Computed example of a mutant assay.
Amino acid sequence: MAGATPLRALLQRDGCLTLPGVFDGISARMAASTGFDALYMTGYGVVASALGVADAGTATFSEMLDRVRCIAGATNLPFLADGDTGYGGLLNVDRTVRGYAAAGASGIQLEDQEFPKKCGHTEFRRVIPADDAVAKIRVAVEARPAKDFLIVARTDARYAEGLDAALRRAERFLEAGADVLFVESPESLEELRRVAETFKGAWLLANMVEGGRTPYLSTAELGAMGFKIALYPGSGFLTAAGALQLVYRHLKSDGIGTGSKAPMLPFSEMNELMGFPAVHAFEKRHGLSGSQHEK
C-alpha cells in the first residue's frame, strides 16, 4: 500500500467517492490505470470469475482471501473488500477481519444475512437477529489492526423486514462503531433520500447495480443526496461478460477472433497493463535477456 492515500483520508475529502467493482488482477489493474482513487472487491464478481457459480454463499473464506491478496498485489490503491457474513460466527468474523487486513485490504464489508447469503439484489434473502448482527460489527471493530481499516456495516433488512427495520439496524451498527453504513437495495428515490436524511453526517454507501432493485444514479446525484460512497460493483464484470459473448460468438461463427463488435485491447497495451516492461527491465538488469535467457 506504499504511496496510496488511506481510504479514510479519501472519505474525509469533500464529495462522493466512486468505487468501481474489481474481481481479479486484470480488472484491478485496469481500474487503477484509469485513475480511480480506490476500488471495491465485489463478491459477486469474485465468485463468478473464480468459481463460475452464483453469489449464493458458496465461496469460502480462504477462496475470498486469495482474491484479496490478488487485488492487493495487482495495485497499490486502497480497496474495500466484500466479506459476506464473515463466514461463520463471531470467531470467524474476528479471523476474517484480521485476514483481510493482513492480505492488503483497506476495509471490509460485512452483512447481516443468514448463511448462506445471496447477492443483495436477488430474491429470498433473510437476515439474522439484530442483536447477533450488532455483535458481529462490534467484533469486527475490535479485531481490526488499526482505525484506518474501515468497517462497512451492511443490512439486507430492507428486503426481509422493511425500510424501518433496516434503518434501526443501521443506527445500531453506527453505535457499535461501524465507519460506513450500507443499507442495501432501497427500492425508490424516496427511500434513498430517507436513508440519507436519517444519517446526515455519517458515511453512507449506495450500491448501484445495473438492472438491480435500486434506482440507478450517478455519483454526483448520490453525493447531492448525502451519500459518501457510490459503489458500482457490476459495471466491470457485466461489460466483460458482454464483450466475451460477442467475441466468442464471432470466433465460433467466423473462425477468427478479430472483427467482432467487442472492443479488443491491443496485445501491446495488454502487455503494458500487466507489467511486462518491468519484467523485461528485471531480466536485462540481471543478464537474463536475449540469448542468455534461452540457455
Rank of each mutant, 00 (worst) to 15 (best):
144 R>W: 01
106 S>I: 05
18 T>C: 07
77 L>E: 01
222 L>C: 05
256 I>M: 08
7 L>D: 00
176 A>H: 13
162 G>P: 05
228 K>F: 15
144 R>F: 03
60 T>S: 01
67 R>M: 00
85 T>A: 01
204 L>P: 04
49 S>Q: 08
20 P>Y: 01
203 W>F: 12
255 G>C: 14
32 A>P: 02
287 G>F: 12
200 K>E: 03
225 M>S: 11
46 V>P: 05
36 F>Q: 02
56 A>L: 10
93 V>A: 10
132 D>S: 11
257 G>N: 11
92 N>K: 08
117 K>I: 00
226 G>P: 14
225 M>N: 12
267 F>S: 01
218 S>I: 13
131 D>E: 14
221 E>R: 07
269 E>P: 06
225 M>R: 09
78 P>F: 14
72 A>H: 10
220 A>S: 11
108 I>T: 04
230 A>V: 00
251 L>R: 13
256 I>A: 08
200 K>S: 04
143 A>Q: 00
198 T>G: 05
69 R>M: 03
88 G>N: 06
272 E>N: 05
120 G>M: 14
62 S>Q: 07
245 Q>N: 10
156 D>R: 05
149 F>Y: 08
55 D>W: 06
45 G>T: 01
252 K>I: 04
200 K>A: 08
165 A>Q: 03
170 A>F: 14
119 C>K: 12
87 Y>Q: 05
282 F>C: 11
218 S>E: 06
177 G>W: 14
258 T>Y: 15
213 R>W: 14
150 L>R: 02
115 F>Q: 07
272 E>G: 11
105 A>T: 02
107 G>L: 08
104 G>N: 03
230 A>L: 01
282 F>N: 10
201 G>I: 11
111 E>I: 05
211 G>F: 09
277 P>C: 08
294 E>C: 15
201 G>P: 14
206 A>W: 05
142 E>Y: 15
190 E>D: 11
164 D>Y: 11
179 D>A: 10
170 A>L: 09
131 D>N: 13
131 D>H: 02
216 Y>G: 05
18 T>I: 04
50 A>M: 02
91 L>V: 06
174 L>C: 08
196 A>L: 06
143 A>K: 01
211 G>V: 02
67 R>Y: 01
201 G>T: 13
50 A>K: 05
249 R>C: 14
224 A>I: 07
52 G>P: 02
63 E>H: 03
32 A>D: 04
13 R>C: 13
148 D>G: 15
57 G>A: 05
